[in-house]
Design a protein around this nucleic acid. Structure first.
Lengths: 171, 171
DNA sequence: TCCTTGATGTTACACTATAACATTCGGCTT
DNA sequence: AAGCCGAATGTTATAGTGTAACATCAAGGA
């Protein structure tokens, strides 16, 4: 699936990836796209799964599984770890959420349905996480791996550094 | 520091990254280079640190902190987690070991002293981990991040897939 | 010698994640 | 409507990963 319909100008515009903007756009749009995608695959977007995705969509940060679980429990869902982990695993398998391994945390995917091997930019000052277009990065990785005969099936590419806002503020 | 002296033909040759070869070369050479590097920085390569590096160098795989700890404990070193984690953290800070976040594990660096932002190739069949030259990958990441105003200070780039051997055997 | 610094060792605990099993729900067949 | 089946949820319990805090010890300098 091509990148035909940006889900949110604020989220997608490169120069606004870290800028403050109305998250409502991202949230409602990504959610409806996720619903359609899951339905098209003959799977079920259950209440827990939907709620977890909504929670992740509330911020452009990464949330730990136990943070998500806390929210779920407070809302009457199950209060045990598997409840959160199963929903998160489902969302990740469906490409609706990503795991940020550096943080042991999860973040909503900003481009559901589009084939992409994202790179994540993690700000060490404000903990914001942005999903950067990384086709070139992934390509370079495939090439480097190919040179040693390795076939890449999946990747995690994460960068730790400083976002524009924090760099401006703190030098 | 430039990549002037490959530490081991078997380890460094791209087409042998995953091939069986005499680990003795890698181990003794990497170890002596590590010693020199640490000394040059005015730091101390203590017995625990040296032993942990040796243990990591025994294989071209990633080891969990608790696996390392088990070895240490069996040899008379402290038996509590911080003993292993402190040595591993030291080695990582000095660029003598790398953390493979996908596996919650650690692996010895094959190019100590050389500036590098490595990519790791993790075989899902045999669990071997190879450190691929990834200057181009890191450059692509820097560029992609730069486009959204993000300054990359550190990265983890990991690929999951199949090594040449396993692909040959299993199709 | 005394003192400071850094390294090691310990206890104790926090955080992350999964195995295994019971229960419930939705859809389908009869 | 009754019964069945597979998927999803909920639970208990436990495994695995990582760190805070403090005590002890060794090395080097004042």
């Amino acid at each position: 699936m091509a990148h035909s319909a940006p889900s949110c100008p604020g989220c997608d515009a490169p120069d606004l990836a870290f800028a403050a903007h109305d998250y409502g756009h991202c949230q409602t749009d990504a959610l409806s796209r996720a619903e359609a995608l899951v339905a098209a695959r003959g799977l079920r977007m259950t209440p827990v799964r939907r709620r977890v995705l909504e929670i992740l969509l509330e911020t452009h940060r990464a949330m730990g599984a136990y943070d998500v679980l806390g929210r779920l429990a407070a809302e009457g869902f199950g209060a045990q770890p598997p409840v959160a982990y199963r929903a998160l695993d489902f969302l990740e398998e469906q490409g609706l959420a990503h795991r940020i391994r550096r943080l042991n945390a999860f973040t909503a995917c900003m481009h559901p349905g589009e084939a992409h091997a994202p790179a994540f930019l993690i700000c060490r000052s404000c903990d914001a996480v942005a999903e950067a277009p990384a086709r070139s990065v992934r390509t370079a990785l495939d090439v480097a791996a190919g040179q040693v005969g390795f076939t890449v099936e999946g990747s995690n590419i994460e960068a730790l550094g400083q976002c524009p806002d924090c760099r401006g503020r703190a030098a």
